Amino acid sequence: KELVLALYDYQEKSPREVTMKKGDILTLLNSTNKDWWKVEVNGRQGAVPAAYVKKL
């Protein structure tokens, strides 16, 4: 499985998103959308802005 690093804090704004903190390591589930990537963090799945994460 592919991992990404959170470059910034992000507070979810809808139920389809997830909150992450700078430095979090997230499991990347889907990166086909260039703006929003689906990730899993702390057992929750949701979208985060692609510009806020970097593939490891």
Rank of each mutant, 00 (worst) to 15 (best):
K1Q: 13
E2M: 13
L3P: 04
L3Y: 15
V4H: 02
V4P: 00
L5G: 02
A6P: 00
L7Q: 03
L7D: 02
L7H: 02
Y8S: 09
Y8N: 08
Y8K: 13
D9S: 09
D9T: 05
D9E: 06
D9A: 07
D9I: 03
Y10A: 00
Y10R: 03
Y10W: 10
Y10E: 00
Y10Q: 01
Q11S: 11
Q11W: 13
Q11Y: 14
E12M: 13
E12D: 05
E12Q: 14
E12S: 15
K13T: 13
K13E: 09
K13S: 11
K13G: 09
S14Q: 07
S14R: 07
S14T: 12
P15K: 10
P15E: 12
P15T: 11
P15N: 12
R16F: 15
R16P: 06
R16I: 12
E17G: 14
E17Q: 10
V18Y: 04
V18Q: 03
V18R: 00
V18H: 04
T19A: 06
M20G: 01
K21C: 11
K21Y: 10
K21A: 09
K21D: 04
K21T: 10
K22I: 06
K22Y: 04
K22Q: 10
K22R: 12
K22W: 04
G23A: 02
G23I: 00
G23F: 04
D24P: 00
D24R: 01
D24H: 05
I25D: 00
I25W: 05
I25H: 04
I25Y: 06
L26D: 01
L26F: 07
L26W: 02
T27M: 12
T27A: 09
L29P: 00
L29Y: 04
L29S: 04
S31I: 09
T32A: 13
T32L: 11
T32I: 11
T32P: 04
N33A: 09
N33E: 11
K34S: 12
K34E: 11
D35V: 14
D35C: 13
D35W: 15
D35N: 13
W36N: 02
W36M: 06
W37Y: 08
K38W: 15
K38M: 15
K38Y: 15
K38A: 12
V39L: 02
V39M: 01
V39N: 01
E40A: 08
E40M: 09
E40H: 05
E40D: 08
V41I: 15
V41Q: 10
V41W: 09
V41A: 12
N42K: 09
N42D: 12
G43M: 04
G43F: 05
G43Q: 07
G43N: 08
R44D: 04
R44V: 09
R44P: 01
Q45T: 14
Q45E: 13
G46Q: 04
G46W: 07
A47I: 15
A47C: 15
V48T: 02
V48G: 01
V48M: 01
P49G: 02
P49S: 02
A50M: 05
A50Y: 03
A51H: 13
A51T: 12
Y52D: 03
Y52S: 11
Y52I: 07
V53F: 05
V53D: 02
V53R: 00
V53E: 02
K54Y: 09
K54F: 11
K54N: 06
K55H: 09
K55A: 09
K55R: 13
K55S: 08
L56A: 04
